[in-house]
């Protein structure tokens, strides 16, 4: 280790000039430590005759990240702040989004990029709620439905949006707690909606997603009287994997916390403060 590392912001270095780089990738010399190191059982490092090994050390997501950076630059050039909204299926992203549009849609020009596996059902729910523009990206290409939006999908969705007419782009990712966290799409911030019906242990089971979030909206708190959900236990689990996340307790259904969420969104782009409406 040591010749490459990832930073918390997702960027990475590869120190290809390190004289020791690639050492353990080509064991075509006698190993003085043979028999002492735990790696000795790994024979994948030995080359058969007539073969050549090429050291690559390339991040698997580098192509995605390159497109994500392009997306980010295009959004910045158009003066648009972008928020990647993620959650498991049914946590309440779309309902929260509809309340958000109703609350701030006539003050802040909001574009919505909807990722959905095969339908436009979510986008249909948002029609008339106050979005300046909505673009749907169905992710059902390739192997029968991707489980996340990647930077290329977001790029094509952005092409159908009037970016100069927008202040804020909300990218509603596909409902899934595993994949979306791996793929940057060019966003300025990442928001996660978590429903209290999902259970206190979820931050420990899906740490990549919970770590990636700048803000966690703890949704459906109107249901708490009917559940055994332990709020303090959940918050301590969340803090264990992501101590820096901003936490908003909310119910998109009752409207509780929606104002705080809208204020957080507005603060992302130093957008005009939302007047109290609802």
């Amino acid at each position: 280790m040591g010749r490459f590392h990832l930073h918390a912001d997702g960027t990475d270095h590869v120190h290809e000039l390190d004289p020791d780089a690639g050492h353990h990738q080509d064991h075509d010399h006698p190993h003085p430590d043979a028999g002492k190191t735990p790696e000795v059982g790994d024979h994948s490092g030995y080359l058969e005759t007539g073969q050549t090994r090429i050291t690559i050390l390339e991040n698997l997501l580098s192509e995605n990240d390159r497109v994500a950076d392009d997306n980010g630059r295009r959004l910045a050039a158009a003066g648009v702040r972008a928020v990647n909204l993620m959650s498991s299926p049914g946590a309440g992203k779309t309902t929260l989004l509809r309340k958000t549009l109703e609350r701030m849609g006539d003050v802040v020009r909001i574009g919505v990029l909807e990722g959905d596996i095969a339908t436009s059902l979510d986008a249909d729910q948002l029609q008339g709620a106050g979005a300046t523009a909505i673009s749907v990206v169905n992710t059902s290409a390739g192997f029968g439905g991707e489980c996340h939006l990647d930077a290329v999908m977001v790029r094509s969705g952005m092409e159908r949006l009037p970016l100069p007419e927008l202040d804020l782009l909300i990218i509603e990712n596909v409902g899934n707690l595993v994949c979306p966290a791996e793929f940057r799409v060019g966003e300025d911030a990442r928001a996660m909606v978590f429903a209290v019906t999902e259970g206190e242990e979820k931050p420990l089971k899906y740490p990549v997603m919970f770590r990636a979030a700048d803000v966690v909206v703890v949704n459906k708190i109107d249901l708490l009287p009917h559940l055994d959900f332990d709020v303090d236990l959940f918050l301590s689990n969340l803090k264990a994997v992501n101590p820096r996340a901003h936490i908003i307790m909310a119910s998109a259904r009752s409207g509780e916390g929606v104002e705080e969420w809208c204020a957080w969104l507005a603060a992302q782009g130093e957008l005009e403060p939302t007047p109290s409406q609802v």
Partner: peptide, 21 residues
Amino acid sequence: GFDVKLLSGEELLVVSIDLVD
């Protein structure tokens, strides 16, 4: 303590490929 720096564990890397000469 929670004030930690991650040294490794987030790798997602193609290290090498072997080719037939």
